[in-house]
Amino acid sequence: MNKTMTTASLALALGAALTVAASPAFAADSAADKEKCYGVALKGKNDCKAGAGTSCAGTSKTDYQGNAWTLVPKGTCEKTVSSTSPTGKGQLAEFKEKKA
């Protein structure tokens, strides 16, 4: 609470930022040397790609049942620290063992 943003300190900060922004290291990485390219949408993010949104995607999948809710999360989270776990880690692995 002891520092105050004066007009001078704001101007100094902006001036310093501009100096950094104008340096070649940043300029080379700027958006200016890229162009927006249509038709190369991120995977799965366009509207008519085979996959998400096309009816053919559905036919080979099995129907999950409502009882899937007895499942517990699995996967990479097993390696993650967990505050709700008695051991602090590996709680999900324990759940998986119970289920097996």
Binding site: K43, K45, G51, S55, G58, K61, A68, P73, K74, G75
Partner: peptide, 24 residues
């Protein structure tokens, strides 16, 4: 309809899916 919408969610939320596993 259902599977294509679930696929769309899986495409938009890849890390969320990784964290809980595909089945979940």
């Amino acid at each position: 309809v259902m599977v294509s919408l679930i696929d769309a969610l899986a495409d938009s939320y890849p890390v969320t899916q990784d964290l809980v596993g595909e089945e979940f």
